[in-house]
Computed example of a mutant assay.
Amino acid sequence: MNWDQIKGQWKQYTGKAREKWGELTDDDLERAAGSRDQLVGVVQERYGIAREEAEKQVDSWSRELG
């Protein structure tokens, strides 16, 4: 699924994001607001992982949505 679609329906996808990354808070998801780069940053920060790994996880998650 492309990021324009995800951003447009972000409220519906926050539950799926929370399933994938259980440590994300409502504030984290609100801050991401459907932006790939913001979500990558939030995942990286919350899980203490490298940006490259966070990008892989976010890209994998977005493909699973489609």
Rank of each mutant, 00 (worst) to 15 (best):
Gln5Gly: 04
Glu55Arg: 14
Glu30Ala: 10
Arg46Ser: 10
Asp28Ile: 08
Gly48Lys: 15
Trp3Asn: 01
Asp27Ala: 15
Trp21His: 05
Gln44Cys: 03
Arg51Asn: 14
Ser35Glu: 12
Leu24Pro: 04
Glu64Gly: 13
Trp61Tyr: 11
Ala17Lys: 05
Glu52Gly: 06
Gly48Asp: 08
Glu23Gly: 09
Arg46Glu: 10
Gly22Cys: 01
Thr14Val: 14
Trp10Leu: 01
Ala17Pro: 07
Thr14Ile: 12
Glu23Met: 12
Gly15Thr: 14
Lys16Gly: 09
Ala33Leu: 04
Asp28Met: 07
Ala32Trp: 12
Gln9Phe: 00
Glu45Phe: 11
Lys56Ala: 13
Gly8Ser: 11
Glu30Cys: 01
Tyr47Cys: 04
Arg46Val: 15
Tyr13Gly: 00
Val43Pro: 05
Arg46Thr: 15
Val58Ala: 13
Arg46Asp: 11
Gly22Arg: 10
Tyr13Ser: 03
Lys11Asn: 08
Asp28Phe: 11
Trp21Pro: 00
Ile6Gln: 07
Ala17Tyr: 00
Glu19Gln: 13
Gly41Trp: 03
Arg36His: 05
Lys16Glu: 05
Lys56Tyr: 07
Arg46Gly: 02
Gly48Ile: 12
Glu45Pro: 00
Gln5Tyr: 08
Asp37Tyr: 00
Lys11Asp: 13
Asn2Trp: 07
Glu52His: 08
Glu30Lys: 13
Trp10Glu: 01
Gly66Lys: 11
Asn2Cys: 01
Gly22Val: 07
Gly41Gln: 09
Glu23Arg: 09
Val43Asn: 08
Lys7Arg: 15
Arg63Thr: 09
Lys11His: 03
Lys20Phe: 02
Arg63Trp: 01
Val40Ala: 13
Tyr47Lys: 12
Leu65Cys: 06
Arg31Asp: 09
Leu29Glu: 06
Gly41Pro: 03
Ala17Ile: 15
Gly66Arg: 13
Val42Gly: 01
Tyr47His: 08
Glu53Ile: 11
Asp28Trp: 05
Thr25Ile: 08
Trp3Met: 07
Glu55Trp: 03
Gly41Cys: 02
Val43Leu: 05
Asn2Arg: 14
Gln12Arg: 14
Glu45Lys: 15
Asp27Gln: 15
Gly66Val: 12
Leu29Arg: 06
Arg18Phe: 03
Glu53Tyr: 12
